[in-house]
Design a protein around this nucleic acid. Structure first.
Length: 422
RNA sequence: GGAUGGGUGGCCGAGCGGUUGAAGGCAACGGUCUUGAAAACCGUCGAGGGUGUGAGCCCUUCGUGAGUUCGAAUCUCACCCCAUCCGCCA
């Protein structure tokens, strides 16, 4: 959600921001509504003020036994005049609000310009892809050949974009999750949380998933939404709360299933488990002071990177360009893991600084000890740390051997009961 | 699903038609006292918006939305949410 005050003060910058998002300028339209609203509001307030005076005077007069009739009559007259203004005020306020909640967040100046993901900028590349003495296979070939990854039966029970893992692959998935949780809680100070997977409408709104992206998520018959990412639950930890400045930054990590309808992705990544309706993800969320947001973003990216470093999987860090940064974000870095089977880097994590955009939507605020300070909106950040299903793919493809077996990454061996090969 | 109780400021909690934006307590902040701290005492202390150079003034806000009234936290209606008990399931 945007800050109308900021738009008033920076209309041209606001429009520039919209332009970078591929939208046409709106500041003059918005500020016109804002100005109209202010006028109506002021007129309304004059009436309200008089109404209050009269009511107080009547209260006074009644106590002293004075005649009240003329006052009562004026009150009635005012009451008749109010509804028109009230309605107008509500209408303008609604229009204004609509703009503020439906437009995407602005972008930081450091976000590279570009129209889609093809123009994202590689910031750094870490690790060298291994050279193979044979043609590396894709994860689904490896998985199916092992008999531990079953798309067919999953399709029978659930449809496309589902998978059944079993035996060592199921174990590997669990091992990855545990390893990541341990890393983030023990080395990076994140607090582990086990949040709801079903959330209400206002939580989805607060995180910026609604109203725009309703098709992307599943809704239950009870009206709940299945979280498309635990970013929703974790960020809503702060909803309608007043946090203490001293407790910032707050850092949470959760391991949850995520549910996505993938409505807009027809035909993309249809094979394998790269794009599923349901997948596990370890998610990082921070609440920071505004001035510490960027620093916290770097820290978060570092935590996500550490997962891949420890797994010894080559990857690169990409700064998303203006056309690819999501609705709620000010700036986003993706981590892309090297997948030898695809001979490509593929997204495995996405870390975003959302500024006060989500905090405004969900009314998360913080206040310093000094009671004279006004409450402020904290900055929210979220990042995958990392997508577990995709991490499993990356392990399979990077650690495959010629006979189709998979070496277990060194850091995972303790999580695999000592198993060194699958 | 059925029954009951309830949603008030950072938190707890009173208020149940008229100086109530809301008692009291806690927390926080400032001060007195103290070698220092604690305790005690005194004081300050909700949020959002409008307006003004400013002190200030005004409006809104007691779950949400409608309604009654000159006037609503207080009365009426609808809805949402929470708690507890019962039923059902794990």
């Amino acid at each position: 959600m945007h800050d109308i005050k900021w738009i008033r003060e920076n209309p041209e910058e606001f429009d520039k921001g919209l332009k970078r998002r591929g939208l046409s300028p709106l500041s003059s339209e918005i500020l016109k509504i804002d100005a109209d609203h202010k006028i109506v509001q002021q007129n309304l307030q004059v009436l309200q003020s008089r109404r209050n005076e009269i009511a107080a005077a009547i209260g006074q007069a009644k106590r002293s036994g004075d005649n009240v009739e003329s006052l009562t009559q004026e009150g009635s007259e005012i009451r008749e005049r109010m509804p028109v203004l009230e309605e107008k005020e509500k209408e303008l306020k609604g229009k204004l609000h609509h703009f503020l909640i439906t437009l995407p967040n602005r972008l930081l100046p450091s976000v590279p310009h570009g129209k889609d993901e093809s123009e994202n900028v590689v910031v750094r590349t870490v690790g060298k892809p291994r050279t193979f003495s044979f043609a590396p296979k894709e994860h689904f070939d490896l998985g199916e050949a092992s008999g531990m990854m079953d798309f067919e039966q999953a399709a029978r029970m659930s449809g496309s974009r589902f998978v059944i893992l079993k035996k060592h692959l199921a174990l590997l998935q669990r091992a990855l999750s545990n390893f990541m949780l341990d890393l983030h809680t023990q080395e990076f100070g994140y607090t582990e949380v086990s949040p709801p997977l079903l959330v209400n409408e206002s939580s989805m709104f607060g995180a910026g998933q609604l109203p725009k992206f309703a098709e992307g998520a599943f809704q239950t018959t009870s009206g709940h939404w299945l979280i498309p990412t635990s970013e929703v639950s974790l960020t809503c930890w702060g909803a309608d709360r007043m946090l203490m400045e001293e407790e910032l930054p707050l850092r949470f990590v959760a391991h949850t299933p995520c549910f996505r309808s993938e409505a807009g992705a027809a035909g993309r990544d249809t094979r394998g488990m790269l794009r599923q309706h349901q997948f596990y993800k370890v998610e990082l969320v921070s609440f920071s002071k505004p001035e510490e947001g960027l620093e916290e973003l770097d820290r978060m990216v570092g935590a996500a990177e550490e997962v891949l470093k420890k797994l010894e999987i080559p990857y690169r860090v990409v700064s998303l360009c203006s056309g690819d940064v999501g609705f709620s974000a000010l700036k986003t870095y993706d981590l892309e893991a090297w997948l030898p089977g695809q001979n490509a880097y593929r997204e495995i994590s996405s870390c975003s600084l959302c500024g006060d955009f989500q905090a405004r939507r969900m009314n998360a605020r913080f206040k310093g000890k000094d009671s004279k300070e006004k409450p402020q909106f904290p900055y929210t950040l979220n990042g995958s740390g990392i997508a577990v299903g995709r991490a499993l793919i990356a392990v399979l493809e990077n650690y495959q051997q010629e006979d189709g077996s998979i070496q277990v990454p060194r850091v995972l061996i303790p999580y695999m009961g000592g198993l060194t090969e699958i």
